[in-house]
Computed example of a mutant assay.
Amino acid sequence: MDHARFAAFAGTLADAARAVTLGAADRVAENKNEDGTYDPVTAADREAERVIRALIERAWPDHGISGEEFPEKIGAGRFVWSLDPIDGTRAFICGLPSWTTLIALLDEGKPVVGLIDVPTLDERYLGFPGAPGLKASECRTLGDARLATTDVHIFSAAERERFDRLRTGARVTRYGLDAYAYARLAVGSIDLVAENSLKPHDYNALIPVVRAAGGVIGNWRGEDEYREGQVLAAATPELFEEAVRLLGA
């Protein structure tokens, strides 16, 4: 397949999403959940996904589409687009710059093209086999690592205890970056990211970006399987393996 062609199209989708999200005057959020937990969504989330979907349906009518805000469209072939129009909606509604747009193309269920767009900072990270411009650090030990996670308060008690093994061993830990942490790992300024409670639209775009940079991404057991929502990304295999040992039950 022509990865570069699809990556260029993903950039077109991100441009269209920026036209919606950067100009959004109304950042009031409503809660999608009815169980008391908070999962915010804004009008910009929904409108950006509508715009992206329309472009995909026009250019690739046989492709499937799986987005955060609307029901899945079943395609006629092997390709499915995974969309998260605003990842980090909490940052978005607070006027912080770290929210992103996540776009991925899956081939037979495997993410092969990933895009992390950071509209407020005018940064874009494109990952696919042979993608240029990305390079993870050479950090091999936890003691030298710059660690990130979005919010430790969504960890279960057991997960928090396991994450603390990383935190206490790392050189520095930063919080609140959402998908932007993986983008920074792909250019060498973050070395390790450990998160939980992620859904497919949260992690599909991250996988090709991290791997194109030479990094390693999997779950907390070191597997290439994410159904439990636990994601671990590291700059090097050595650092990944050390983190897996510490996150082990």
Rank of each mutant, 00 (worst) to 15 (best):
G67D: 00
F70K: 08
I52M: 15
A48D: 06
I65E: 07
H63G: 11
W60K: 13
A48F: 07
G64I: 03
E69I: 07
P71E: 09
E72S: 02
P71D: 09
I56K: 05
T42V: 10
G64N: 05
G64D: 03
E69F: 01
E72L: 02
E72C: 01
L55E: 13
R58A: 14
D62K: 08
R53C: 13
K73M: 10
E49Y: 02
E57W: 00
H63L: 09
E47R: 15
H63N: 13
G64P: 03
E49M: 08
A43W: 00
R46A: 02
A59H: 12
S66Y: 05
G67Q: 01
A44H: 04
E57Q: 15
D62L: 06
E49K: 02
I56A: 07
E49N: 04
T42Y: 02
E47T: 13
E68S: 03
I56Y: 09
V51P: 03
K73E: 09
E47A: 14
W60N: 12
R46K: 15
D62E: 12
R46V: 03
R46C: 01
E68I: 06
P61E: 11
I56S: 06
W60D: 09
A43R: 05
R53T: 15
T42S: 08
R46Q: 06
A43V: 11
P71V: 01
R58Q: 14
E47S: 12
I56H: 06
R46S: 01
R46W: 00
D45H: 02
W60F: 15
I56W: 05
I56G: 05
A59W: 08
E72H: 04
F70N: 06
F70D: 12
E69D: 06
A54G: 13
W60P: 06
T42L: 06
D62R: 10
T42I: 10
E72G: 01
R46F: 00
V51W: 07
R58Y: 08
E57C: 04
V51D: 07
A59I: 10
E72W: 02
G67Y: 00
E49D: 09
A48E: 06
R50T: 07
P61T: 10
V51C: 08
S66M: 09
D45W: 01
I65G: 08
E49W: 01
V51F: 10
I56D: 05
E47W: 12
R46D: 00
V51L: 09
G67H: 01
A54P: 14
E69C: 03
A59D: 13
E57V: 07
A44L: 11
A43I: 09
S66K: 03
L55W: 09
I56R: 05
R58P: 04
E68L: 05
A54R: 15
F70L: 14
R50S: 10
P71F: 00
D62T: 10
I65T: 12
A43L: 10
A54H: 14
P61V: 08
A44K: 02
A59R: 15
L55S: 08
P61I: 09
A48T: 08
A54W: 14
R50P: 00
V51H: 07
A59E: 15
F70A: 15
E57P: 02
I52R: 07
G67T: 03
I52C: 14
L55N: 10
E49C: 07
E47P: 10
K73W: 03
E72F: 01
E69Q: 06
